[in-house]
């Protein structure tokens, strides 16, 4: 009968272990909403930063983040999907592709701030791009590249081999098989993976700070070589200001950031549902 008591305790302890992090999540969301929602109005979204907490807005951060995500996606998605196609459809078991796959695994574990140092050394200095939007986007692209590759490989792997064999049997070339059979079948999952990796890029702060994003910007970027800021950078700047009032401004920014991520994630879910229904 000792079993019964031990089993009970186990269930309770394990439930508490699961419940604590979830409680933390609820507290976090509640705290941010409590502090921030009242701060959000139209002028918060359309104003420039200010020394006065109640006048500060996040327009440059918002615009900067949107440009960054667009550019990051343009650089990273073709590269990532291309690499995944090579690894899954061409290289299968060659020594080279195994090496690339292991390398991607290790890259996924490199801290994001290190990517900032990479971007600073390569894009800002060696390529002479300066502390620009494109340097930031290229850095973020390398950062999320492993995620895109891994998600795309999973998507391609889920396509049944019989489809490939049938197409090859009909006389299609390898690329024709990929282009007309494999890619269309894997597209919903690939797109979902890409959107999720972009939402990772939206929230990244440290690498952009190292690359040299500005914290107090009173203009919008007018090209890919312009100096820039981003939503999380703006929030960091507000969090680290000691003056009263910036706490709520930061919380307001966080609510907007989380809202943006929610939209991206919902978009991914809906897109996936729609695309897989259409077929």
């Amino acid at each position: 009968m000792n079993h019964r008591i031990a089993d009970r305790i186990l269930v309770v302890v394990c439930f508490v272990g699961l419940f604590l992090p979830l409680a933390c999540l609820v507290a976090l969301l509640g705290d941010v909403m409590w502090d921030g929602v009242a701060r959000i109005d139209w002028s918060f979204l359309t104003s420039y930063p200010s020394r006065h907490a109640d006048k500060a807005g996040l327009l440059p951060g918002l615009v900067g983040s949107l440009f960054l995500v667009l550019l990051t996606g343009l650089i990273c998605i073709p590269l990532g999907v291309g690499a995944a196609i090579y690894l899954q459809e061409y290289g299968q078991d060659s020594r080279l592709s195994r090496f690339i796959a292991i390398n991607i695994g290790s890259l996924a574990g490199v801290p994001s701030v290190i990517y900032g140092l990479l971007g600073l050394g390569i894009f800002v200095r060696t390529f002479g791009l300066g502390r620009s939007l494109i340097a930031g986007a290229a850095t973020l692209a390398l950062l999320v590249l492993p995620i895109v590759v891994i998600a795309s490989i999973e998507a391609l792997r889920a396509v049944p081999g019989t489809l490939r064999e049938a197409a090859l049997g009909l006389g299609a070339t390898r690329w024709q098989v990929i282009r007309h059979v494999v890619l269309p079948a894997a597209l919903p999952s690939i797109l979902t993976g890409c959107i999720l990796s972009m939402s990772r890029a939206v929230g990244e702060t440290a690498p952009l700070i190292v690359v040299g994003a500005l914290t107090f910007v009173t203009f919008l970027p007018d090209g890919i070589d312009a100096p820039f800021t981003a939503l999380p950078i703006q929030i960091y700047n507000w969090v680290s200001r000691p003056q009263a009032g910036f706490e709520n401004t930061a919380a307001g920014g966080i609510v907007i950031l989380l809202g943006l991520l929610l939209i991206l994630n919902l978009g991914a879910v809906l897109l996936r549902a729609k695309l897989s229904k259409d077929r």
Binding site: G91, I100, L117
Partner: peptide, 24 residues
Amino acid sequence: LIEMLLLSCGLVTVLTTIGIGYIL
């Protein structure tokens, strides 16, 4: 050509590793 293009996408990840090591 297509295969080579796709391979070069994969090699970007290797270049990233080399880049990190070189810069640091």
